[in-house]
C-alpha cells in the first residue's frame, strides 16, 4: 500500500449571502495522504488556510447525515469518502453544497423543505389499539419486506439529487416516501390506508419520474425508487391492504413459530 502524499487542488463553491451576489469558486491545495477523507481535507483547509470556509458535520461516522455534499457532481457523505478516490485527472476535486436547496453559506444548505416533507408523511408509528404486553412479534419475511428502509439516516443526498424535487417544490421527495414505505409496510402500523391515501395525491408517489438519482446518491445503498413503486401498487388496493393489516394485527403478540435455541 502506497503511503506517498499526493497534492490535490480542492475546489470549493463559496457563497456568503451577506456579501456575495452569486456563488464563486475558491481553490486550496492539500496533501492527499493515505486514509484522509474529504471531510479531513475540509477541516485542514478551515484550520490552516481559510477559517471562513463553512460546512456542516457532526459524527464523522456516516450516521448523522449532516455532511452530505456534492463531490464531482455526485452527492455523498464526505466523512466516509477517501479524498484520493475522487481526484480527477487534473488532480482536482470539486465540492459543492447539495444541489436544488437554498444555500445558507458555502457548503451549508437550508433543509427546511426537506424536513417539512418528512413530517408531512407522519413518519411515526401509529400503533394498533391492542398493544401486546411484552413485544410485537414480526416474522422474518415481514422484516425482509422493509428492504432495510429503517437504515435511512436522513442525510438529504437522495432528496437533493432528485430533478423532480428541483422542478416541483411540493413533491414529497424520495426520503419521505421511503419513510412512508417503512411505515406502510410495518405490520405494527394501523393506518396504512390513510397514509396511502395521502401519498396518492398529485405531489406523491405518481410524481416520481423514475430517474433513479435517489438510488445512486444514497450512501446507505437503499432503494427509494423501488419503495415508491411498491407504494404505487399498494395505493391502488389500499382498503384491501388495510383489511389484511387489521387481520394480521390480531396475532401481533402471538409467537411466530419456534425460536432458534429454545
Amino acid at each position: 500500500m502506497s503511503t506517498t502524499a499526493l497534492s490535490v487542488t480542492v475546489r470549493i463553491q463559496r457563497f456568503n449571502p451577506d456579501v456575495d451576489k452569486k456563488p464563486y469558486w475558491d481553490e486550496f491545495k492539500v496533501e492527499a495522504t493515505q486514509g484522509k477523507t474529504i471531510l479531513d481535507a475540509l477541516h485542514e483547509i478551515k484550520e490552516e488556510q481559510d477559517g471562513s470556509v463553512t460546512f456542516q458535520r457532526s459524527c464523522r461516522h456516516a450516521i448523522c447525515g449532516s455532511c452530505a455534499m456534492n463531490v464531482n457532481g455526485q452527492n455523498m457523505l464526505v466523512c466516509e469518502t477517501p479524498l484520493r478516490e475522487h481526484v480527477d485527472r487534473k488532480g482536482r476535486i470539486t465540492i459543492r453544497p447539495l444541489p436544488y436547496l437554498p444555500i445558507i453559506k458555502d457548503l451549508v444548505v437550508d433543509r427546511t423543505r426537506f424536513w417539512e416533507q418528512y413530517l408531512r408523511v407522519k413518519p411515526w408509528l401509529i400503533p394498533p389499539e391492542n398493544i401486546p404486553e411484552k413485544e410485537f412479534r414480526m416474522s422474518e419475511d415481514e422484516v425482509k419486506a422493509l428492504h432495510d428502509a429503517e437504515h435511512c439516516i436522513m442525510c438529504g443526498a437522495c432528496y437533493s439529487s432528485c430533478q423532480v424535487v428541483a422542478l416541483n417544490k411540493s413533491y414529497i421527495g424520495p426520503h419521505a416516501l421511503l419513510k412512508a414505505f417503512l411505515r406502510v409496510m410495518d405490520p405494527r402500523d394501523s393506518a396504512p390506508a390513510a397514509r396511502l391515501d395521502d401519498l396518492d395525491k398529485g405531489d406523491g408517489v405518481y410524481r416520481c419520474h423514475t430517474i433513479f438519482n435517489c438510488i445512486d446518491a444514497c450512501p446507505k445503498k437503499l432503494n427509494p425508487t423501488e419503495a415508491i413503486e411498491t407504494l404505487r401498487k399498494l395505493a391502488m388496493k389500499r382498503q384491501a391492504f388495510e383489511d389484511a393489516r387489521r387481520e394480521r394485527q390480531q396475532q401481533l403478540n402471538e409467537p411466530i413459530g419456534p425460536v432458534p435455541g429454545h
Binding site: 436544488y100 437533493s160 432528485c162 428541483a166 423514475t210 430517474i211 433513479f212 438519482n213
Partner: peptide, 11 residues
C-alpha cells in the same frame, strides 16, 4: 444540474 444516466433518459 445533477448529471446522471437517469437524467439523460428523463430528458
Amino acid at each position: 444540474m445533477y448529471r446522471s444516466t437517469g437524467f439523460l433518459s428523463f430528458l
